[in-house]
Amino acid sequence: TSEVNPQMLQDLQAAGFDEDMVIQALQKTNNRSIEAAIEFISKM
């Protein structure tokens, strides 16, 4: 599995997102940004 940015993971979990969804979103967006991860999650 590709690495996820631990700070982004922590921030998104703090915002109430599920850890598994956050990890998948960060991997799919290559840790580009929190906004990109949220957009990915919203389309899941």
Results as ranks from 00 to 15, higher is better:
Val4Leu: 05
Glu3Gln: 10
Leu9Lys: 15
Ala14Glu: 14
Phe40Arg: 07
Leu9Ala: 13
Ile38Ala: 12
Met8Gln: 03
Phe40Cys: 13
Ser42Asp: 14
Asn31Glu: 07
Glu39Phe: 00
Thr1Lys: 13
Met44Trp: 07
Gly16Cys: 00
Met44Pro: 09
Pro6Ser: 12
Phe17Arg: 01
Glu39Asp: 10
Val22Thr: 06
Glu39Ala: 11
Asn5Arg: 01
Asp18Glu: 14
Leu12Ser: 02
Lys28Arg: 12
Glu3Ile: 03
Gly16His: 06
Glu35Ala: 09
Asp18Ala: 13
Gln13Glu: 08
Glu35Trp: 03
Asp18Gly: 09
Ala25Tyr: 02
Ala15Asn: 06
Phe40Ser: 10
Ile38Met: 13
Val22Asp: 03
Ser2Pro: 15
Lys43Asp: 13
Asn30Ala: 08
Phe17Val: 03
Val22Gln: 03
Ile41Thr: 07
Met21Trp: 06
Met44Asn: 15
Ala25Arg: 01
Gln7Glu: 12
Lys43Asn: 12
Ile23Arg: 14
Thr29Ala: 02
Glu35His: 09
Phe40Ile: 09
Ser33His: 00
Glu19Met: 07
Asp11Phe: 12
Ile38Lys: 15
Ile41Gly: 06
Gln24Ile: 13
Phe17Asn: 10
Gly16Ile: 00
Met44Ala: 12
Phe40Glu: 15
Ile38Trp: 05
Val4Gln: 05
Leu9Asp: 05
Val4Thr: 07
Ser33Glu: 01
Glu39Thr: 07
Val4Ser: 04
Thr29Lys: 01
Glu35Lys: 09
Asp20Asn: 12
Ile38Phe: 04
Ile34Asp: 07
Met21Leu: 14
Gln10Asp: 10
Gln10Met: 10
Ala14Pro: 00
Leu12Cys: 03
Ile38Cys: 10
Ser42Glu: 15
Gln13Ala: 10
Ala14Ile: 06
Ala37Met: 02
Ala37Asn: 04
Ala25His: 00
Phe17Pro: 02
Glu39Val: 01
Val22Asn: 04
Gln7Ser: 09
Gln24Arg: 11
Val4Lys: 04
Asn5His: 08
Lys43Arg: 13
Thr1Ser: 14
Ala36Thr: 07
Gln7Tyr: 05
Gln13Lys: 15
Ser42Arg: 14
Met44Thr: 12
Ser2Trp: 09
Phe40Gly: 09
Phe40Asp: 12
Leu26Trp: 01
Met8Thr: 04
Ala36Leu: 05
Asn5Thr: 02
Val4Asp: 05
Ser2Leu: 07
Asp20Tyr: 03
Ser42Phe: 07
Met8Cys: 01
Gln24Ser: 08
